Simulated assay, not measured.
Amino acid sequence: MTAAPTLLSAERLKVTFPGRHGGPPARAVDGVELGIRAGEIVALVGESGCGKTTLARALLGLERPTAGQVAFGGSPLDYTSRALKAYRRRVQLVLQDPSGSLNPRHTVYDAVAEGLRIHRYTGDERTAVAEALSKAGLRPPERFFLRYPHELSGGQRQRVVIAGALVLEPELIVADEPVASLDASVRGEILALLLRLRTELGLSALVVTHDLGLAWNIADRVAVMYLGRIVETGAVEQVLTAPRHPYTQALLSVLPEAPGEPVILTGEPPDPSRVSPGCRFHPRCPILASGEAERAGVADACRTQDPEILTADTDPQVACHWARARVAG
Rank of each mutant, 00 (worst) to 15 (best):
P149G: 06
I309R: 13
M225F: 01
L182I: 12
T53G: 00
Y226I: 10
A58W: 09
D124R: 08
L197Q: 04
T2F: 12
L265R: 10
E40S: 00
V160P: 12
T2L: 15
R303H: 08
Q158L: 06
D183R: 04
V160Q: 11
G202C: 10
M1V: 11
A10W: 07
G31T: 08
V15D: 01
C279E: 12
P307Y: 09
A136K: 00
A136H: 00
E200W: 05
D271K: 12
R159N: 10
Q156R: 04
A192C: 06
T6M: 05
I173K: 01
A180V: 02
A38R: 07
E171R: 03
E257L: 12
S75M: 09
R12N: 15
V29K: 01
I173C: 00
I309N: 03
E40G: 01
T233A: 15
V32L: 01
A293C: 12
P5S: 05
R274T: 15
A56Y: 00
R159F: 14
P286H: 14
S276C: 12
E171A: 05
P259N: 13
E261Q: 15
G267M: 15
V129M: 02
A43K: 00
V45F: 07
Y226L: 09
V222I: 15
P246Y: 06
S48N: 07
T304S: 14
G68I: 06
T80C: 04
S204K: 02
A111D: 07
L206N: 05
A26F: 13
T122E: 15
G23T: 12
Q69N: 05
L240H: 01
I287G: 02
D110I: 02
E33I: 09
H210Q: 11
A299P: 00
P256I: 14
V275Q: 07
T233H: 06
L60S: 04
P256F: 12
S290I: 05
T233E: 05
L191M: 10
V129Y: 01
L34M: 13
H150D: 06
A38T: 02
Q69L: 12
L252A: 09
A38F: 00
L146T: 11
A3W: 13
K52S: 05
E114G: 07
A71Q: 10
G31C: 04
K85Q: 11
V298D: 03
R143Y: 13
L203A: 08
G267N: 15
A163N: 03
A28K: 10
I264T: 14
L201D: 10
R324C: 00
D110E: 13
E40I: 00
A113P: 01
E292L: 14
V32Q: 03
A83S: 14
L168D: 03
Q69T: 07
